[in-house]
C-alpha cells in the first residue's frame, strides 16, 4: 500500500463543465451530413482524436465543509459512482487520525486494476482540515482474491497534516476499475 507523499490541494466541489462541452456542438454540425454520399469526407478519426485530447474536468475534491458537523471519530463513505461495488468494513478513525478499513470489492472483480480513495478530515465544526488521494497498488490486492472477489484488502490512510483529536472523516471512491 502506498500513499502519495503530498496531499492534493483541496478544490471546491463544483460541477466544472468539461472543456469540450462546446466541441460536441461542433461535431453535430460536422456529422450532420453523414447520410449523404459526401459523408466519406468526414474526418471522424480526427474528431475523435480531438475529443480524446480535450482537457478533463478537475477531479471532484473534498468539500470545504460538511453539511452538518459530524461527531468526533465518525467516518462516512460518500455516495458515488462505485459505492455499489465496494464495501469498507470496520471503517474507523484511529489514533493519529488514520482512517482504517478492510475493503471488499465484490462486484465485477476478476482483477482489481485501479482503486483510489479520496479521504478528507474535518474539525468539530465541520470545516475541512486536510484531504489526501489514497492510491491502492493493484499488486497489493492479489493476495486478497477469493471466490467472492477481493476481500479484506487493508486500508490505512494517514492524514498528511496533524488533525484534531475530535476530527471526523469522509471517504469517497472516485476511481475503481476491475477487469
Amino acid at each position: 500500500m502506498r500513499t502519495p507523499a503530498t496531499a492534493r490541494t483541496p478544490v471546491r466541489r463544483t460541477s466544472a463543465p468539461l472543456a469540450v462541452a462546446g466541441l460536441a456542438g461542433a461535431l453535430v454540425v460536422a456529422l450532420a451530413g453523414c447520410s449523404t454520399p459526401d459523408a466519406a469526407t468526414v474526418d471522424v478519426a480526427g474528431q475523435a482524436r480531438e475529443v480524446a485530447l480535450s482537457s478533463p474536468a478537475p477531479a471532484p475534491a473534498a468539500a470545504e465543509a460538511l453539511d452538518a458537523p459530524a461527531p468526533a471519530g465518525t467516518v462516512v463513505v460518500l455516495d458515488g459512482p462505485f459505492t455499489d461495488r465496494i464495501e469498507l468494513r470496520e471503517l474507523r478513525l484511529e489514533e493519529g487520525g488514520h482512517v482504517v478499513a478492510a475493503a471488499d470489492v465484490t462486484k465485477d472483480v476478476s482483477e482489481l486494476l485501479e482503486l483510489e480513495l479520496e479521504v478528507a478530515w474535518y474539525d468539530a465544526a465541520g470545516a475541512l482540515v486536510t484531504s489526501v488521494r489514497h492510491v491502492v497498488d493493484p499488486e497489493d490486492a492479489e493476495e486478497h482474491h477469493s471466490a467472492a472477489g477481493v476481500i479484506g484488502l487493508p486500508v490505512d490512510v494517514a492524514p498528511p497534516v496533524p488533525v484534531p483529536a475530535d476530527a471526523s472523516a469522509t471517504v469517497a471512491v472516485p476511481v475503481l476499475v476491475n477487469e
Partner: peptide
Amino acid sequence: TYSLESCGTLGGQPYLPIAQQIARNDV
C-alpha cells in the same frame, strides 16, 4: 474521473476519460 495514476498522459497532457470521450465523439 480523470486521475494521473489511473490515466497517465497522452503527449504529456491529461486527456478525457474513456466514457467522456464516448459521450462526445459520436463514433
